[in-house]
Structures are given as C-alpha cells and as structure tokens.
Design a protein around this nucleic acid. Sequence first.
RNA 1: GCGCCCGUAGCUCAGUCGGAUAGAGCAUCAGAUUCCUAAUCUGGGGGCCACAGGUUCGAAUCCUGUCGGGCGCGCCA
Length: 576
Amino acid sequence: MQTLHAAFVARIDAVLNALEMEGVLPADTPRANVTVEPPRDPSHGDLATNAAMVLAKQAKTNPRALAEKIVEHLEREPDIVEATIAGPGFINLRLSPEAWRRELLAIAHLGQDYGRSDMGKGQTVNIEYVSANPTGPMHMGHCRGAVVGDALSGLLEWAGHRVTREYYVNDAGGQVDVLARSAHLRYREALGDDIGEIPEGLYPGDYLKPVGERLAQEFGPAYKDAPEGEWLELFRQRSVAAMMDMIREDLSLLGIHHDLFSSEAELQAAKKPEAAEAWLREHGFVYDGVLEAPKGKAPPEDWEPVELPLFRSTEFGDDQDRPIKKSNGAWTYFGADLAYHFQKAEKADALIDIWGADHAGTVKRIKAAVAALTKGAGRDVPFDVKLVQMVKLLRDGEPVKMSKRSGTFVTLADVVNEVGKDVVRFTMLTRKPDAQMEFDFAKVVEASKDNPVFYLQYAHARIHSTLRKAGVEPSDAHLDRLGDDELALVREASQFPRVVESAAKAREPHRIAFFLGDLAAAFHSFWNAGNDDPSKRIIQESDPELTAARLFLATQVGQVIRNGLAILGVEAVEEM
RNA sequence: GCGCCCGUAGCUCAGUCGGAUAGAGCAUCAGAUUCCUAAUCUGGGGGCCACAGGUUCGAAUCCUGUCGGGCGCGCCA
C-alpha cells in the first residue's frame, strides 16, 4: 500500500517524464532538487512543488511558463481538485478529501511500518558511536553521542538501510596499561595491602574495587609482589573486559545495544595497520619525515625533531602531515584508526562516525586516509563524521562541577536513574547535534513545561484513554463522516514518511523529534476544540458511527506518534 | 597564530541541499476546566535572523571579511 507522499512524488515524476517526451524538458533532466511538501501557509493548499522553479533554467524557460505545462498534466489527476501557480512559480495542489481518507487507511494498513522507506535500497551503513575508552563507567560526556548515534541508526534503518552499530574498543593504548596498574592496586587492596592514597596518574574511582576483588579471588596472591611484566597483560585483559561489561550495562540503561565491538588490540595483532601502511607507502601517501614544532604555542620543553612515518594529510587540507607511528615504534592512535576504518569499509557501503567535538581536529586526516585507502581498493565508500557538541550540565542554572582526576564526574547511570531513559534520550534529540546544548537536571525532571517528552507521551496517552472509555471500536466504515478539522490531522500525520526520508538523507534524527512535537500539538488542539464545542469531541454518545470514525482517526495519529518515538528509541506510554 | 562548530524573540531552540508574511516552547499579559486526562488549549505583546559586503528573479540559509562564544592544535586518546 502506497503512502500519499510516495504516490505524489511518483506522480510529479510521471508528469516530468511526460514533459521530457513532449520535449518541454530535455531528456534526463536531473530532478534531485524537486520537492513535494505541504506549503508553510496551509491556505495555499495541501501540497506544493517547486518543480517549475528548479527546472526552469534547464528547460530554458521561466518558472511560471513551465509551471503552466506541469499544471496542465496535474489537473488531469483524479485526486487533485485544484492546481494553481503562485508566487515565483510554486505549484499548489489541493487534494480531494478522498485522498486523505485513503491515507488514513494506509496508516492503519501499514501500522508499525508506516513511515518506513526503501530509499536506502538495503545498503549497509556502519555507524560507529560511543567508543568510550574502556577505563571507567560511561559519564555524561558520552551521552549525547551515544543517543544521537543510536537514533541515527534507527532512523537509517527506517529509511531502508541495513545498519551495523559498532563500538571501537580502544584496548591497545597507554590508557589501558594505566587501567591494569590501577586494577593491580585494587587487587592488592583486596588481598589486605594498605594501598593508601591512589597515586597520581592512576585511576582513582571506586568502580575498580570489585575488579580487584575478583582478581584476588581468581589468582590469590600469585601476582601480589610479582614484577609488572608478569601480570600487566593479564590484568589488562581482565580489567578491560570488566570495564566493557560495565559500559554495556550503562548503555543498556539507555536502550543502546551495539551489534559489534571491535578491538583495537585484535586489529593490531592481525597486523592490519602494517598492511595499510604498506599500501599507503606504495602509493606515496606515507613517507618518512620530520615534523616541525607546533606553531602559535610555545613548543614543549622536550621537543625534539624525530623522523617518523607521516601520512600526507596536508594534501587533503590538513595543517600538517600526521605520524602513524610513534618514535618507540608503536602505532599512533591515528595509525591504528585508519586501518580500523579500512576494515569497516570492507564490509559496508557507507561509514558514519559519531565523535565528540573535542576530536574535531582529527576529522580531516581520517577522512583523507579513508578516501585514499578505499579509492585505492577500487571502492568509493562515502565516509561521514558527525560531530556532537558538548553538553553543559546544569542544576538550577548552576554548572555541575566535574573532575575526572578526583573521580567525581557525573555518570550516565546517575543521570538515567534520576531523570529516566526517555527524558535523557529525547532531550538529547531536541537540538541539532552540532550546536552546544545545556542540560539542566532541575528543568528536565519536572514532568512538564521544559520537558517536551511528556507533551508527546500525553498526547499518546490521551488517545489510549479515549479508546478505553469509548465503548465503541474504532472503524473505517464511515470515514466520510470526518470533516475538514479531522482531515487536517491526517494532513499533519501524512508528512511522517517524508520527514523520515528527509531526516535520513540529512542524517539528522532531531527532525523526527520536532515533527512529533508538531503532530502532538495538532492533536492536543483538536482535542481541546471539544471543550468549547461538545460536538467536536471524539466520543459522541448518540452517534456511534461518527465516534468510530473519529476513534479510527485518533488511533492512526497515535500510531504515527508511536512510530516516530520508536525511531528515537523512546517509549510511547498508554497511561500517565 | 591556525583549524572546526555555533551566533535567529528576554531565555532554550527549530527553520527542509536558496523560496511565499521567519516559527515553537518557556517567561510575560488576557482567557478556557459541571466536559473524552487542564501534564492541555485559545489569543496578545515581543525580531537590524551578530555586523558589513557579495552572488541572483529571490538569502536566516551560499561566498568573503569583521566581531562574539565553544572545542581543539606534539608521537595523548
């Protein structure tokens, strides 16, 4: 069953085909810019298209003249009551009530699939998000990227992509050695040693105590006084595994479950970075060279020029070439990361990374490396890095103090426990991710006002309470009883498939959240009309046919709200 | 000094790869509840879309510059 949106996109397309046949438009005119959407001002009509304005130049005519040709065809379409040309060349369409009733049936028929699209054609998209270092629990700094990445995954699935949700486990760098040493300290503590203050440079958090206890249980005192070389590797593996269990648990509080956890250590053990380096060297992207001291700032005291293998990222707009290996021979983060991206690209048609804004400086080099590697392999895999800006935590307008050093950061689990999964997720999705945002506990726990989640959930709950109270089953038997006010709700809801597609194309899940706000507002408004005028209430005791039709309408509005919330991973409640 | 992101109503933010009279929530003012859930709704006031140029039929949107805020700038991760 086709949605109204899909049907009209197809119709406009058919008209343009016809115009190409007639020679009005040149053959194979690109149409990517043609849109079909409701005009901002509803008095202009139900749908509008910019086709004439976008294509006029290619047709070597002016927009209004082309619009007239298009209108000639559109007027012959059965569902179109009126097609008019307005302003610089918009074509406004007014649809028959029958078209809207059919859309209502389409929502009912498609149910929880209403809004899904095959736009993505089953292409595989790998989305890497979170990828927090496995050295402690998730804190609020990770939260926004986690939610945005997860919602984007859901959105792209709805738009017809196959999505792999991936987490890159940085278990090979110096930070996991620090973790292992910190765990060893807790291990000694569990065995009865007085460890005193946690030394500078080790992780102080209490979350390592259970890790130490388990190590003590498992190994007894075997490694208590042993030299580091005997236990470091073992303790690293054990503690990373423990941290990842903890992180997975934190993520599941937010309803986030990755499909794949990729280990940097395994990647290195498989010699993937070596393979990438060899290829890059062969093709002139990597050379041995000496970096200049950093400009603008005073160079570090121990600055020494050293020859290192460098990736030519300057050729891709970066400030300087970037080392892929350290002077001690180990891979840099970048060196391993480019191999990792190449590995992902082998199994996906497109890659997306969600990063915190503090990593913005490294976007150019990794994009350059991926472009070089994938094109070299004969596969042009589009790669997009979405930057998620910082979240400023407030409580009653006052910044919440955080210090990693003392271990007093705000954990994600604390926040979810305090305000709830749905609130955290939705709040993170009501702002575009590339702008900084504020997150105020005091405002967000309040069950109203500054909290748009409840507004949506209330609309959904109202619909369900009406269904419970009505004593009549919703029915599509008499949809002709629905008037303009009611069909206006269908018009609003019918935008959902289009919003899903455009949000997916732009990779901006927050658009779903804003659409749902508009839809809920339309419903609340419709509901309240019944306060002033009882004949507008959904339940009409003396008219079961009308009641059933209005219940049917309300049910479908609820369905669309539920579908939208499902994309965002937020629950639709039936009672409040 | 350089790079990236942002600057829209008093506040928090939307604004569709350039489109019609720039929107919403909060706050504020005036109203609506014997009634399907008022956690809601109706209406009013409030704008140099940071500033200055440019591109064109048309700019909040694209380009250049300036100012302001954030993030980053070693072989860290």
